[in-house]
Design a protein around this nucleic acid. Structure first.
Lengths: 246, 246
DNA sequence: AAAATTCTTCCACTGGACGGAAGGGGGCCG
DNA sequence: CGGCCCCCTTCCGTCCAGTGGAAGAATTTT
């Protein structure tokens, strides 16, 4: 059941990613591993429907219709909208890069990112994924994930910087503290010069997301940042509860 | 050439909209006008790929993968990212609901919306469309649209409130002034109690988007608002030019 | 417990999908 | 200018994946 028409069309869409935002017909055919004639027909249909658009150059890009559909996804319409005003407040209070993320499998999926004109160099982009063990939001989500997910993560603690925690025991110890104290921190574990603090966002009893900020250094004002984060997280949680999200 | 497999799969996705964010299999089949067995198979494939997700209730919703794809669309990745910091500045300076919109056919497509905790009642949502003749951003986009688009719009000047401009001649006159003065205004033409000001966002010589704000009343501080808008629009234009968007 | 509704699986027929091949168009180089 | 290369588009006979009626399972309602 591997080669259905639908799966081919979807594979064409899947040919696009962060590094390949516009592709020629030939590129699409190559990346989806389809004969040119077949790709031509399918791409034509996708284009007619609005899933793909054509740049002046002739290359194809993801169309507005897909973008509009994406806005209907639950991450977007529920969580993001509930969080939006609180994220702005948080940014205003801290002037740090603000992140909202959810867990997707064993990775962190960034749902929203809010940064000013200048900011600490950060790798995350909205819609991108990162491993959980070396980011603030990731530690929060991992700490509150089901046991089997945590176990799976521990199996691949890849080293990113010299400060990345790669010993399972040590990470588990940190996660225990995250649950106990209600917030997680990292210090240059993902990229040098960037530290982070994060707190869980709840919907009822469940942890549905994590809210975090990235700063150059957090020795001095950690208590203030944690309290600002918790105020925002509580606000989001309350909004989620009131709209009965999910 | 109306009934291809791909078009059916796409129609299933198209069954979702602002009012129907989650649908049961039966609903999907009904809305896409497909036999249940066929819908079942196609939905299964879409689900397997990640285009659809399943709620705890068993209903289907747009999946994260579509959301991620949407983030790659040019509106999103180019325009929105370039605009983001300036929109926050603008919100900070005016505390009004801020809108960024592009033209899509003969309608206004809202690309970004930024509102505080409380705000003037506004109908727009990100990803939604509205007619051009009765919104601030719409008038800006219409004023700078190709002649044939303008003509097409004039053919359907639907009345929304008692203040909506429905006489072609009068609207054309307003548009001429928009081009001359560099900004457009509306007064309760879309919804009562809401006025708006908007300015064009350029990329080189082309008007690629419109930036607008909605306020309860604009008699008093119009000059200040226009200048704040223009500062932001220039900032966005400069950013677009520097990243060679499109 | 019966009835109604929704979801899932099955399978034989058939019409839409397939893709090799050939034909256009534009850009680059010798 | 002509030859070459690359990319896009169209065509058409073959064939297999898609189709959908029907039956059955699962769930909810009456």
């Amino acid at each position: 059941m591997g080669v259905t028409v639908t799966s081919r069309a979807l594979d064409l869409l899947g040919a696009f990613d962060g590094e390949h935002r516009s592709l020629s017909l030939t590129d699409l055919a190559r990346r989806a591993d389809l004969p040119l004639a077949t790709a031509h027909r399918l791409v034509g249909e996708l284009h007619r429907w609005g899933a793909l658009a054509r740049e002046p150059s002739g290359e194809y890009v993801i169309g507005r219709r897909i973008w509009q559909l994406g806005l209907l996804a639950p991450v977007q319409s529920g969580l993001r909208q509930a969080a939006s005003p609180f994220l702005h407040d948080l940014y205003g209070a801290t002037l740090a890069t603000v992140h909202l993320a959810v867990r997707d499998g064993i990775e962190v999926l960034y749902v929203e990112r809010l940064a000013g004109h200048v900011s600490v160099p950060v790798v995350s982009r909205v819609g991108s994924r990162l491993p959980m063990h070396c980011t603030g939001v990731g530690k929060v989500l991992m700490a509150h994930a089901p046991e089997e997910v945590r176990a799976e993560c521990l199996r691949q603690l890849t080293r990113v910087t010299a400060y990345t925690v790669t010993q399972p025991a040590r990470l588990l110890d940190q996660l225990r503290r995250v649950r106990a104290e209600g917030y997680a921190t990292t210090g240059e574990e993902m990229s040098l010069g960037a530290c982070s603090v994060a707190v869980p966002v709840r919907n009822g009893a469940d942890v549905v997301a994590a809210l975090g900020i990235v700063v150059p250094d957090l020795r001095r004002q950690l208590p203030r940042l944690v309290s600002a984060l918790q105020v925002a997280a509580h606000g989001i949680s309350r909004t989620l509860a009131s709209v009965q999200w999910k």
